[in-house]
Design a protein around this nucleic acid. Sequence first.
DNA 1: GCCTTTACTTTTAACGTTCAAACGACCGTC
DNA 2: GACGGTCGTTTGAACGTTAAAAGTAAAGGC
Lengths: 335, 335
Amino acid sequence: MVTLKQVAAHAEVSVQTVSNALNAPYRLRADTLQRVTRSIELLNYRPNRNARSLRTSAVELVGYCVPSWPNGRSHLVMDVFLHALCTAAESTGRHILLFTAPAGLDGMSVYDDLHARRLVDGFVLSQTQTHDPRHGWLKEQEIPFVSFGRVWKETTQPGPWVDVDGAAGCATAVRHLHETGRRRIGFISWPRTSGLAGNRLGGWRKACRELGLPATAQLTVHCKEDSIEEGVRATARLLDADQPVDGIVAISDVLALGALRELNRRGLRPGVDVAVTGFDDSPLATVVSPALTSIRQPMDEIATELLDLLTSSTPAPTERLLQPHLVIRGSSAPG
Amino acid sequence: MVTLKQVAAHAEVSVQTVSNALNAPYRLRADTLQRVTRSIELLNYRPNRNARSLRTSAVELVGYCVPSWPNGRSHLVMDVFLHALCTAAESTGRHILLFTAPAGLDGMSVYDDLHARRLVDGFVLSQTQTHDPRHGWLKEQEIPFVSFGRVWKETTQPGPWVDVDGAAGCATAVRHLHETGRRRIGFISWPRTSGLAGNRLGGWRKACRELGLPATAQLTVHCKEDSIEEGVRATARLLDADQPVDGIVAISDVLALGALRELNRRGLRPGVDVAVTGFDDSPLATVVSPALTSIRQPMDEIATELLDLLTSSTPAPTERLLQPHLVIRGSSAPG
DNA sequence: GCCTTTACTTTTAACGTTCAAACGACCGTC
DNA sequence: GACGGTCGTTTGAACGTTAAAAGTAAAGGC
């Protein structure tokens, strides 16, 4: 392995000069720089990251805990998110280090350890839960982090975050359904305790009211879990009401797929008789027919902002709310 | 940050003794060990990984290139695979470092760089392509790696690999369909050029012959790409043949979903009129109704073997073929 | 012509760990 | 009582880099 020393000898300068050629080229005289650069290329020198990190105590690695969901449920857009995260990290010379940890406070010793052993500089959190304890803990330990997702139901946000405006996304879906002639739009949600669900539900309610559409409690169903079956059940309820819905905004693609299934079972045509939208634009959206209209999160932008906030010092705003956008497909607009 | 030096001072021993307490405790007298251990715990000392790596030139990090697929297609089981990989790595004190790289030879400079800068010790390759150039290149550079997936259509395997016996998986699917009364089983495949497809097709053919079932060219369809639409088209062909099939083994869940869609369109009941199986047991398998029977790869085992082979020196066998297993659902066995 | 400044380069000393060799104490041997 | 061996511990050096200080030479000011 070629070291600075060897390059220095080859270029007939001191070791520090070679280091400067890489880290502070403006310090070198033009001809020296060129000579050193030539030696670097000739010898195919690559700086040893461990030595550098030891000296500077910055590893340029960002920890990301790979989420594991209960009972075999999987993270449908993880590959997109991770790809975006990697690309964003690499654009600033960093990389992503994966690890696993138990959920909640139990996992914090893992975070602590990774940071203390200097395997990572900081963390990107995702799958943020309502009352998520990780954020406060990390803040207290002064371990750098940034969160994808606000911590709901806390008075103050314990640290920087990037989030997608779920309320705006759902409002957009409602307006889209209204524009295509729907006048009674239901909302299929998660449990009431979920802050994320509350936010999105709020967006649906606000848009309905602004458009003069009903936004009553009968038009919202809170599902126990994010499953097809629950989506089916919720849809049945919305269709069996005194005044059945002609549009459904679901809080997830999975629940939306449940809605489509129930429509099919009843011989109702999705997109024609009843319009349906989902959330996340996961791979599921395009495997059904008609394909599912869904709200897509801007993953590249999210990843860039996350890694930006992780480094930026406090003066800059540390909260960024990004706009999702609606991907319209056959389930809401046939043809 | 607490260092060895401080622990040494606290325990009133030399720095090296503390190092030994962690890396070679058998060298210490019992009482010394206990005293040092107590100091370590008291001061909450964590060894600095960068310093250690600098000295030993082993970083305990394994690089994994996050796959990006053409035209927005996504890797449906990536979260499961990555979770397994992380867990396996952590069980031996290692971690996974993610990165992105262009496909094929163009990306090799990225691999080279990561290794030369000592960011990783080696690589786990996946999405192995027929004639994949990465393996040979890495071998030539003497960069440690292990491959998930054999390199098809090469005379010798350029390095250690772990793979799933796709032929056996498809044969199992065929036997399962035979047991449930199917007598004319089609195979929906990828392009002829794919070695992986050839392997799985071979499994189907062999099982059919052994059971006395037809395995003619009319019973196989080679799709251009892995899409629902191609699955639909292929299924139409299998159903429109002089002697229509009563069972379909598809080489992927996506193609299988195409099959289900075409059956539904024709009013044929999946699992009753025609049985269908997929491959990978992706999240797609459980969002359709009836749910899709699918061949699941043993991800935990794969991950463990991969990381095992990456470290093990040459004497041990460097090729491991693992058995997948069939997850039976309604698309092949109603009720 | 002397002093100050500027521009560039080198020297010195870390960063926190582990390897290899040296050391000292104790034991048993002859 | 000198000798070799074993056990447990310490010493010294090194891994490859960068920060900070020191050095040198040329240029600029008066």
